[in-house]
């Protein structure tokens, strides 16, 4: 078991988002909105290109939190604000860099303040988790 100390910076992890991954997530989640798969459609509704499902990005951040916590079973709370879309052009792996700082720690749980960045821009805001220890 890891020990968490308030203010501790946890190691960053990179995820790579591409079109194929969005199709896989669409099938797994049931969210088949074409803005996440079809470039022509995405542009037709005013987007610059296909964008990742916000819940896919949040899901990847959730994977990071589960890993830090020692398993999904330890994640008690998780929240995020979808501040900027993650644009996913064809044939590109878009890097999502996730990191966290430990907030308040009690005997039984720790709070995490999480950062998720693509192309130097924070794509999620107010990203917080509570994990059990």
């Amino acid at each position: 078991m890891s020990t968490f100390i308030t203010g501790q910076e946890l190691p960053a992890k990179s995820f790579f988002i591409n079109r194929a991954a969005l199709v896989t997530y669409a099938h797994a989640s049931g969210d088949q909105n074409p803005i996440h798969q079809n470039e022509e459609f995405a542009r037709s509704v005013g987007l610059e290109n296909v964008i990742a499902h916000g819940m896919y990005t949040m899901g990847l951040v959730g994977q990071y939190i589960s890993e830090v916590a020692g398993g999904s079973v330890k994640v008690q709370e998780f929240s995020a604000r979808f501040t900027k879309p993650v644009v996913v052009p064809a044939d590109v792996d878009v890097e999502l860099i996730v990191s966290a700082v430990v907030g308040e720690v009690s005997e039984t749980s720790a709070k995490l303040e999480v950062t998720a960045i693509c192309n130097d821009v924070k794509v999620l805001g107010m990203t917080k988790a509570v994990i059990s220890l």
Binding site: T24, G59, L60, G62, I65, G71, V73
Partner: peptide
């Protein structure tokens, strides 16, 4: 399916999202 789409290898418990 959901866990693997997120790169999660622990498949016993559903991912938090």
């Amino acid at each position: 399916a959901f866990a693997l789409a997120l790169g999660e290898s622990n498949l016993q418990v559903a991912p938090p999202t």
